[in-house]
Simulated assay, not measured.
Amino acid sequence: MSLTFTHETLPQRVVFASGQAAERAAEEAARLGSRPMLIGKPLIPAVLHHTDVAMHVPVVTAERAREAAAAAGVDVLVSVGGGSATGLAKAVALTTGLPIVAVPTTFAGSEATDVWGMTENGRKTTGSDPRVLPRTVVYDAALTATLPREMAVASGLNALAHCVDSMWAPRADPINRALALEGIRALRAGLPADDREQTLYGAYLAAVAFASAGSGLHHKICHVLGGMFGLPHAQTHAVVLPHVLALNAVAAPDGFGTAELRRLRDAVDAPRALRDHGFRQEDIPAAVDAILPVVPAGNPVPVTGENLRELLQHAWSGEEPR
């Protein structure tokens, strides 16, 4: 059978340098500007160190950061932290065009995508724009050493969700699949062993696959849950993943179905139930109504109000997916 697909690779410089984050981030920032704004954790000298960072990037938080950047006359953004720090830098870049050097301290993956997201009035809006893609990413596994094991697991499973969702996302193609499968291999090896370097490598591959393939059913569900109910990003993805994988079992990644995911979740003591993270059972109907209109076309299994309600019920209670 002939191959017919269109693949787009995003332009980005990637530096893997364990134990060298400060030095390499300073070098990369100097390539792009002379007045850096440091967003998140302290790492390099900067004309402005901005620590007003919040989960899901509230619009008001983004506006404050933009005003601070303009007042300080910065010409390059350096984000140090998890997805919230990266997301805030993207929100500033979206309106200013300032280049970003991203230094991740979790496995969120936002640093390798051109996707931005902001929340206002309980609604998370996302989009893609080349201005928000970090020019350089500096990966240093040593920066994840202080990440608590529980959070590392949730964040790593969030990365795994990027791999899995890339299999049936709107722009899925054989190149995305190859990246995602290697990402799955690295994450399956790294998470149980608490090997932060291998996990970081897998998270990067996962994000690259996801950036090209687009947002599939899993991420549409989690974006709604995070934006409407303020649920923690990584834990929400970790809980929802097995239920979406079970629903879309016909398109499961090669050698990685519900049984393999269950063994991995057991090995790392993964988060199990959305009710443990602030989601209420009475919120399920509203969540269903909000998710149905954004379900991607072409999902391997038709998504209905009934099967979506059942999926969220099981994710809320922590039942194993059917």
Results as ranks from 00 to 15, higher is better:
G226H: 12
E27H: 10
H277Q: 12
V294A: 05
A287R: 04
E282L: 13
E282K: 13
A93E: 01
L10N: 05
V103K: 04
P42G: 09
A154Q: 05
V288E: 02
L312H: 10
V250C: 14
F5K: 14
E260W: 11
G33V: 00
L292S: 09
T113V: 10
R64C: 08
V240M: 09
E310S: 14
P232I: 00
H218W: 06
H218D: 09
R185K: 14
P170C: 11
L225P: 03
F210V: 09
A72T: 12
V76N: 00
T6G: 04
Q198R: 14
F279G: 02
A65C: 01
A17D: 05
I291K: 04
W168K: 07
D165F: 09
G87Q: 03
R188K: 07
A154I: 09
P271M: 05
E120G: 06
E260L: 08
R123D: 10
L88P: 01
M55A: 11
A54F: 08
P11R: 04
V60G: 12
P253F: 03
L245R: 10
G156V: 01
A287D: 04
A145L: 14
E23Q: 11
I221N: 11
A62M: 03
P285W: 15
V301M: 14
E120R: 07
V137D: 02
G278V: 03
V224W: 07
S212V: 08
G33P: 02
A186N: 13
L187F: 10
P170M: 11
V101G: 02
D276V: 02
A71C: 07
D140S: 09
R35Q: 00
F279M: 04
G81H: 01
A93T: 00
G73Q: 10
E120L: 08
A259V: 14
H49S: 12
R309W: 13
V268A: 15
G318D: 06
A161Y: 08
G122I: 02
I44R: 01
S166K: 11
G127I: 04
M167F: 15
S2W: 06
L292E: 07
A259E: 14
G122T: 03
A172M: 13
V137C: 09
L160D: 01
M167E: 08
S34E: 07
H237V: 12
D195Q: 10
E8L: 15
